[in-house]
Amino acid sequence: MHATGTTGVVMAPSVFEGTASTVAMIVLLLEFLMLRSALLRAQIRLYAAQSAVVSILAAVIAHGRSLPELYVLAVLSFALKAVLVPWVISRMMRDSATEIAGSGALGVASEVIVSIGVATFGFFAVGALHIHSTVLPSAALSLAVAVVLVSFVLMIVRRDVISQSIGFFSLENGVSLASLVVAAGMPLILEVAFLFDLLVAVVVFGILMRTHHRHVSSLSTADLTSLRG
């Protein structure tokens, strides 16, 4: 066990560390909300909220650890991931004019239980590595890995293109959370390069969604198996 006092009490982290872990925890909880939400528009809104929280975390670190270049990253990632990408996806959805609700392959409660198992596995697998960061508490790294794993579950259990691409984008949120933990001092240009990678993914997924919609005139991927010759 980490940071255990003589009496078996788990010591409280400092105020900064507690705040940072709490913000990272909110990112994970939003991922779970995405998994639960049945409506695609709600999912897009949740993705925007999650990206905003990641940007807030970058700003919190910039303030608490005096790394001013992280402010730039925070602003950039907010503009890109909380405003631009959700706007692009919802425009595509407006074009396709089909609404899918509740495309999960499992019931909501089972999905959540499976994801709790997967996320806990991620937690303890990373916790066993004992990676210590100077910038953030190591719990944030475990949380980042949990976000990545839960977004995999989201992509696996949902059977529509929008949910799957949202799952992929939120996976990127998990990765940028992890990069804030292990490499917050990384040169800004690298971090920005990661962000623009996301734009490429948005373009690719956008083309994929449109092609899929043109071929089967639905956003659901459930029919794909019947197309097999």
Binding site: M1, H2, A3, V10, P13, E17, G18, S21, M25, L28, L29, F32, R36, V108, A109, V112, I113, I116, A119, T120, F123, F124, G127, P137, S138, A139, A140, S142, L143
Partner: peptide
């Protein structure tokens, strides 16, 4: 109940990983 369980189990997980 699953949502409440989610919050409670992560409380325990963060405690045992440090930083909780």
């Amino acid at each position: 109940a699953a949502a409440a369980f989610l919050l409670a189990i992560f409380a325990v997980c963060t405690l045992f990983l440090g930083g909780g």
